[in-house]
Amino acid sequence: MTIPRFWREIKQRYKGIGVECGNCQRVYFPPREVCPHCRRESIGKMKERELTGKGKVITYTEIHEPMSDFKMMTPYIMAIVEMDEDVRMTGQLVDIEYEDVEPGLEVDVTIRRLGEESPSGIIYYGYKFVPIR
């Protein structure tokens, strides 16, 4: 990722700022300009909404063949998490052993290092999930 591309989405990556459709109250993350359900009815009515960060695991995997930037974390767990706001996110699940992961596992967000541009480049931070104990 380039610097502006990362920087532009800091609010989403650090704070989980999504949007709520003013028409149907559905929540979206990342933010959308248009609600896919309400379409034109939603234009101008999408308002910012900070997610609580809590949710439960819908499905998951443990990656053994990563993209090169993630080798130091390998093997690592990815999950699709359904947030309390009924919106889903993809993220790493950390601080848990793979055999302890199961559907329905309750998780919370935490902010971790996602990667870096290069050893001399900027560091990317963003959300990952940890189990709620």
């Binding site: 650090y14 130091m72 974390m73 790493q92 950390v94 601080d95 935490t110 902010i111 971790r112 290092r113 996602l114 560091i123 931070y125 990952k128």
Partner: peptide, 12 residues
């Protein structure tokens, strides 16, 4: 862990 540093610890 490899994804933790002073920034992530401070944020938490």
């Amino acid at each position: 862990s490899p994804d933790e540093d002073v920034i992530s610890i401070s944020i938490q």
